[in-house]
């Protein structure tokens, strides 16, 4: 673990949504934002609802475009600017470097839970059997009953879907992990498991950016708080 190795360097970020179909209304979410995340660190984004925590997270993942600034990510020994990289570069960063666990699972019709979890490994060219074995271990650890593994998660409960999502995010030991309220709908037992998994990840040197509503989890996994203040909404 080297806590002086920066994995993400975001500088002077600004994000404004323009709603063209609502009279061109502009919503400024943040501006002039700087954030550096080192390996082995778990930075907790903190701020009230609507302050732009998820927006920042999505910008880091390349899911949202930022209007200003740069987001440099350490990928395969080089820096990639996620705010300007070409789609195939971003996909390659997502494949090998950066994992993202959102609050909601985007279920794919007909694809079994086990395959959804194993997919990130298979996409990286790992052996299918080994990947499925690893997926099974994770699902076991997260207490997803084995009888559900072969089913498509569209019909699972919220908690079960969330755990499938977490397993998928953690299966490939990404150097960078983005966690958007991963414990939101989990019971105490599973919350503890996820907390442990996050601690293990920082332990192996992963750089983590997270949003955690639960104060206990926040205190246990977070190495640093990053305050996001809501901007005054433009009229």
């Amino acid at each position: 673990m080297n806590s002086d190795t920066p994995m993400i360097i975001a500088e002077d970020l600004g994000k404004t949504f323009v709603l063209h179909n609502q009279g061109g209304q502009e919503i400024s979410v943040f501006e002039g934002l700087d954030l550096t995340v080192n390996a082995g660190e778990c930075v907790v984004l903190h701020g009230p609802s609507g302050a732009g925590k998820s927006t920042l997270m999505r910008a880091l993942y390349g899911n949202y475009l930022v209007g200003e600034g740069t987001i440099r990510v350490s990928h395969a020994g080089a820096w990639v600017d996620m705010s300007r990289a070409k789609p195939q570069k971003i996909l390659s960063v997502r494949k090998d470097t950066m994992g993202y666990v959102s609050q909601f699972l985007r279920a794919i019709p007909r694809v079994a839970a086990l395959d959804i979890v194993a997919e990130p490994l298979i996409v990286r060219g790992e052996d299918e059997t080994a990947a499925c074995e690893r997926a099974g271990e994770l699902l076991n650890r997260l207490r997803v009953p084995e009888k559900l593994w072969s089913l498509a998660p569209a019909t699972f409960s919220g908690g079960e879907q969330q755990r499938v999502n977490i397993a998928r995010g953690f299966i490939s030991d990404y150097p960078i992990l983005l966690l958007d309220e991963p414990t939101a709908s989990l019971d105490a037992q599973n919350r503890a498991t996820v907390t442990a998994m996050i601690q293990e990840a920082t332990g192996r040197g992963a750089a983590i950016v997270g949003i955690f509503h639960d104060e206990d989890v926040r205190n246990q996994v977070g190495t640093r708080l990053f305050e996001i203040k809501p901007m005054e909404k433009a009229a």
Binding site: H20, N63, Y64, L65
Partner: peptide, 15 residues
């Protein structure tokens, strides 16, 4: 990128 265009569409028509 597909998810970027769908989740953060920039053009009025895409929105």
């Amino acid at each position: 990128l597909t998810d970027q265009v769908l989740d953060d569409p920039q053009h009025a028509y895409t929105q």
